[in-house]
Each structure stands twice: as structure tokens, then as C-alpha cells.
């Protein structure tokens, strides 16, 4: 079984549009939405949830008021400023490290599970899908990403799927690292803007750091041809394949509004280019 992650560094370059199109073009795939903070893939694929799994992220400290003597030792030791002046625990800041529990002389603090979100095993019109929703403001999205990837992998084994297609989050931090660790290929979607090419450089660095092969797609390449050419040249110098140059096309948004993938929605140039890119990527995955 092969795994492909679509990432971008910069947000809004078209990861989800492309992942959804791939989902509709792949023959025997499981799709995973690993942007657990702000997942959008379900808006295009309309999954039917089969199973909901509670996600417990970091633990959280809980104080027993009847035992607390207000000595303040916990507050003095907390690295995360998660204990206020009134010695109340600020759950938004607590990382569940257990220092307060350990230092409290009265055993007035313990760590408890907190429900931080849900993961879903679903089916949609193109096959199985794993996705999740991190509760607003929760931590450890990397752990939830790993849970979604495990769900997707297990489902792929159960149904005999030969590929897992992963929609990654923006950025370069913990959920991104969790989304690309150990995959066979990442497709980096960029756009020809200064921001896009700056962010491309950093996300390629992350892929390289973790030893994951990368290929590049320049989306809306025609909004600034000069920058597109610069990106392409730069990729060539780094020995990276540019597997797609997609034109700016309002079909992407029209398809989104119709809750369809762009390849379902139209037979236009954009759709054709996405198809060609998928064939390339599929061949590369072997």
C-alpha cells in the first residue's frame, strides 16, 4: 500500500481541491483529511459517517479544592503559566505535563483525560474516508493526525485498497510532520506569489529533513508567469519534478459551490491538467 500526502506550507493554495479531485480519479483508494484544525475535504466529498471515535489528546490538570491549601507551589513550577494568580487551572494553557501533580504537597491535583475531538471512519461516493475534527482551541493536533492516518491505513488493509491519499494541513509544524512521516511521496502545491515560493522553500526543507520524496504542483501558474518560471527553474536545480502547472480557473470555486470535485464538475482545461498530474503521480508511486 502506498501513501501520498498533499501539502503546501502556505494555506489556500489548493490542497483540498486537488486531493478531492485525486479521490475521484483514483481507482482503489482510501482518502484521509489530516487538516484536523480546519478540515474542508468533507465539504466536497460528503462522507457518510460509519463510526465515530473519541479523541483524547493531552491530559489536563484538575484541582481538588477541598485539599488545596493555596500554598502556590504548583504555580511556581508551571512552565506554561497555566495556573493563575487565584491558583485556578487555565485549561487552555495546560499541556498536561504533570509537574503540578508531582510538586503539590497536598496531593490536591491530578491529571484527567480531556475529550479533544473526534475521528471518523466514513464512506463517500468514491470509497472509504477517514477524517476528524479537533475541538476548537485544543492542543496536540499531531496526535489526532496520527489517529486519522492509522484509521485510513487500517481501512485500506481491510478493503484491500492500494493507496492512501492524505490532505495535509498548512504550515510546517507538528500536524504537518505527523501528516508526512513515513509516506511514499508528498505533492507540494504552491502558487506563483512571493509568499507561495517562500513557503515552498520551507516545506521542501521539512520533507527533506524527514527523508520524504517530494514533487511540486504550481497552481494558478498563469497569475504570475515570471514567478512560476522561477519556481520551476528552482525545482529543476533541486532535482524536483514539477508534475503539474494548473491554470487559474473559476471552475475550482464553481465546483466547490456545487459540492463537487473539479474533475466531476467540468471537462475543462483545469480538469484535464489535474487528470494528467494524477496519472503522473500515480505512476511515480509505483
Amino acid at each position: 500500500m502506498r501513501q501520498l500526502t498533499v501539502i503546501s506550507g502556505k494555506g489556500g493554495t489548493g490542497k483540498t481541491t486537488i486531493t478531492a479531485a485525486f479521490a475521484s480519479l483514483a481507482k482503489n483508494a482510501v482518502v484521509a483529511d489530516c487538516d484536523v484544525d480546519a478540515p474542508d475535504l468533507h465539504l466536497l466529498l460528503s462522507p457518510d459517517v460509519q463510526e465515530t471515535i473519541d479523541f483524547h489528546g493531552l491530559k489536563v490538570a484538575r484541582k481538588r479544592e477541598d485539599r488545596c491549601t493555596s500554598c502556590g507551589v504548583c504555580r511556581a513550577h508551571c512552565t506554561f503559566n497555566a495556573i493563575g494568580e487565584d491558583l485556578d487551572i487555565i485549561a487552555d494553557r495546560c499541556e498536561g505535563c504533570g509537574v503540578c501533580e508531582f510538586v503539590c504537597p497536598e496531593e490536591a491535583i491530578d491529571l484527567v483525560d480531556r475529550l479533544s475531538g473526534h475521528a471518523y471512519r466514513s464512506v463517500m461516493r468514491f470509497g472509504p474516508m477517514a477524517h476528524a475534527r479537533l475541538d476548537t482551541g485544543e492542543e496536540s493536533s499531531g496526535k489526532l493526525v496520527t489517529l486519522v492516518r492509522n484509521l485510513a491505513r487500517r481501512t485500506a488493509m481491510d478493503v484491500g485498497a492500494d493507496i492512501v491519499i492524505i490532505d495535509g494541513p498548512p504550515g510546517i509544524g507538528c500536524p504537518v510532520i505527523a501528516s508526512i512521516a513515513g509516506v511514499d511521496l508528498v505533492l507540494v502545491v504552491t502558487e506563483p506569489t512571493l509568499s507561495g515560493s517562500h513557503d515552498l522553500e520551507r516545506i521542501l526543507g521539512v520533507a527533506e529533513h524527514f527523508g520524504v520524496p517530494a514533487v511540486v504542483c504550481i497552481n494558478r501558474y498563469d497569475i504570475n508567469q515570471d514567478i512560476s518560471d522561477r519556481i520551476a527553474t528552482h525545482c529543476m536545480e533541486r532535482g524536483l519534478d514539477v508534475v503539474g502547472r494548473l491554470p487559474y480557473d473559476n471552475d475550482a470555486i464553481r465546483a466547490m459551490i456545487s459540492r463537487m470535485t473539479v474533475t466531476e464538475y467540468s471537462e475543462g482545461t483545469l480538469s484535464n491538467e489535474v487528470r494528467t498530474m494524477w496519472e503522473r503521480v500515480r505512476r511515480m508511486l509505483g
Binding site: D37, A38, T136, G137, E138, E139, S141, P170, G171
Partner: peptide
């Protein structure tokens, strides 16, 4: 701010 709604945003 960064995108999303998790710890770095908070």
C-alpha cells in the same frame, strides 16, 4: 496569526 484554530492560534 497562523491559520487554523489550535494551540498556536490560541
Amino acid at each position: 496569526a497562523p491559520p487554523g484554530a489550535s494551540c498556536p492560534v490560541i
